[in-house]
Amino acid sequence: MLAFSKRNGLEIMRDPLNLFFGAGFPILLLLLLSAIQAHIPVALFEIGRLAPGIAVFGLSFMTLFSATLLARDRGRAFLQRLYATPLLARDFILGYLLPFLPISAAQTVLLYGAAALLGLRVTVRLLPALALALPVAWLFVSLGLFCGSVLTDKQVGGVCGALLTNLTAWLSGVWFDLSLVGGAFQKIADFLPFVHAVELERAALAGDYAGIFPHLWWVLGYALFVTALAIYAFLRQMRRL
């Protein structure tokens, strides 16, 4: 499983588009919104609230990366070759999931590092914020594994690249205060995990450890549910060969 996991990590890290969207794009957004904040101060875009939001938004690209990797492997018959090896179903699931966790951690470290240069206070509170980014990453990667199991690599680009990153952005409270819209929009946002992921990170970074809950339960609950779905979808496509 380690050999397969290492391969997946290398495939992701060697794709220049992944590097741009994984590391460069969230930092660009952080710079841009911080520049706006410097001229037109908005509470939402203060670095202590903005950085955790963009950290979560950046992690949403893990869905695109993991879905694309899996869908391409399916399309290229690469998985067909590996299915005839002693690897078991759990080796495939873990082999796809695990390399994304250190990559997600590195992305979050880079993002908070950039935020520190823009004025974010470097305190011990960064550590729980970094640790709690991992369940969020797990959620997004599992979502990608589900999509990669049921969609082609072309479909993945539209669904995970355009639709999901936008959904994450609009329904997470990063760009605007959801209570300003209220009503059904806010209820839907509250029911989905994205806003909880952002609030979880904000609470951790602010040192409000009581405020981590119940958001952590929402994120973990969704992560477990989506992982179960991903396992089901992966095994289904494996049997359908």
């Binding site: 290398l10 794709d15 018959a77 690469f78």
Partner: peptide, 10 residues
């Protein structure tokens, strides 16, 4: 397999 099944970025 019939299609070329290699890891392209490796």
């Amino acid at each position: 397999p019939q299609e070329t099944a290699v890891a392209p970025n490796l």
